[in-house]
Design a protein around this nucleic acid. Sequence first.
RNA 1: GCGCCCGUAGCUCAGGCGGAUAGAGCAUCGGCCUUCUAAGCCGAGGGUCCCAGGUUCGAAUCCUGGCGGGCGCGCCA
Length: 674
Amino acid sequence: MLLPVEQEIRHQVADTIRRLYPDAGVPEFAVEMPPNRALGDLAVAVAFQLARPLRKAPRLIAQEIAAALGPMPGVARVDAAPNGYLNCFLDRRQFLLSRLAPAASPRAAGVKTIVEHTAINPNKAAHIGHLRNAALGDTLVRALRFTGTPVEVQNYIDDTGVQVADVVVGFRELERLTLAQVRAIADRPAPPFDYYCWDLYARVTEWYEEDKARLAVRAAALHDIEHGGNDTAALAAFIADRIVRRHLQTMARMNVDYDLLTWESDIIRLHFWNRAFEILKAQGAVFLQTKGRLAGCWVMRIEEAGGAPPADGEAGEPEAGGGETDEEAREKVIVRSNGTVTYVGKDIAYQFWKFGRLGVDFRYRTFAPRPDGRPLWSTTSDTEAAAPGAPTFGRAGRIYNVIDVRQSYLQALLSQALRTMGHAEEAENSIHFSYEMVALSHATARELGYAVSDEEGRKPFVEVSGRKGLGVKADDLLNTLIGKAAEEVARRNPDQPAAERDRTAAMIGVAAVRYFMVKFSRGKVIAFDIDEALNFEGESGPYLQYAVVRANNIFHKFQDREGLGEADLLAGLDSVPAPELAGEDGQHDLWALVLEAGRLDQVVDQVIRSLEFSVLAKYAFGLAQMFNAFYHRYPVLNEERADVRRWRAAGVAYFRAQLTRALDLMGMAVPARM
RNA sequence: GCGCCCGUAGCUCAGGCGGAUAGAGCAUCGGCCUUCUAAGCCGAGGGUCCCAGGUUCGAAUCCUGGCGGGCGCGCCA
């Protein structure tokens, strides 16, 4: 772990500057890593910043600080480099030995944190866009837990929206099926129900396009679903339940899991909105507009610039009688003139609940067993269905909503509502974790048989559309990758039993997807290309797994050939000389590997601060690369010098533990063989 | 129109809270499997870091203004 020693250096250097140059003041300075280990392990460039106020050469300042610095625990020495850097060299033996000791205490717990992610409309199969959401969300959860933060993972289910209504319409109007008949379809093993609905949903979209008057059917269905207690609502509830179960299966394959499902229908039936509405009115956050275009609506003023929509279409004359005014343009409708609440309103109520600021709560039932055997809880509005023993949900101090960038405007409104209510702190801790969408590369769209229009052809990628049925289903992608992995495993390990081969292939396929989804910065559109995703060489999930498998193998062979366990190899190391680790031969490769492995906690901190998981992905990849190079160059098992051999084993043991942790943070498991 | 994001090697992308020779993967070319798994390693070629100003001892990184691309801005969700 680098963080403690980094802090130490920062403080000591600052103190020294204060002592040596009391009038200069201590500038903000960074503790960075020199480009290679021969130069040092941590570096401070503060001498450059002090050069001007002190009217002295950076080199001289660095020398003075280096000379005046007292001893620091964990730091062997500090050099002043000719160019003015202060280069710190760590105590290598102590560093590795202390890292190899079993980890003591997890770091201090932070505030309770809710992460909401996935939130797929429960009307069709999950696609690659949803995989990006889940992979990012789940990695955030794992990273937060790594730092000791208590996290509650929620998956929001919009079971009363138009998308579910559309599939209901499809079953009733296009297929003329009853609930019992739909149930029979859902019970059939193939095609999976979510696949069936995927196609049906696309057909319904076409059906509307043939005759726009048919949209009235959807409106009626939506109305029935929202009110409940009728056949339409029963069918919708059935569809949503079964599709959610399919989504959970898909996500379980991806090593993604949840603590709580929150259903929009429960928010409605428990009248969360009424409560939120009272609060908003009491605080004056919303008001009834009495004139103009929005007369009869309850609206919220929009603070930030940029929310204002353009004057509508052909209405070119801004000040024309009774037309749009700037004032109206900065109002967001929360309750429509017909008295129904908008999506934003429902979301505000939900967000209030997450912070424990609503004053009402859900009831809870168990939904399904989780992969680890504990129950997955679900909200319910049904007193009968409520189960005893539910943990406390909600009441968080910080909330991450993992939703793509297209939701930025609405997410900003949520924060604003909280701020208007006087909950500045909650607004601050209401974090929209936004990321760009996943589209398809032109090549992949073509491969999937989609005719790309001229207009789309000019764009750099092809947008996924559930409505048109255009996209790559998550399970299809997983199946393809796992199938390819199985072929590779079979070729490399022909003697492996089929069951083991398939388990291994599943781990590899999943790692390939998860790494792929996390390796890009979140602000970048992923133009998904199937050939690129199928490449297991180079910067890929399987490459990372392979590095750990090789490291593991060294220890398996130590055990097989010499009966030495890892503990035997590491015992009593403190009395073994370590010339190689010390770099006495001028090589620093073993130490470089150990130090890089030690950066994981620093990387996780940075990842949480920036919500940039590509940093974790690239770190893990770089660490694996470093190990692979080391592996080729330095034998461990076959090293003849006993002391050198043991320290190499120690370094590899530490590397393996750290990379395994890094992979776990990204939801990637490591197979025994591959 | 306004707001946010993106622009780095042929392609896909890191680096972006300023700092040591601008990196990786893919692709191309050339090496390495009687020694811990070749899903690997080593090497070569390949760059006006979109453009122009500015701040700074120092700019791919920060600021301003352009250019190009994406997304958002509804009594949809």
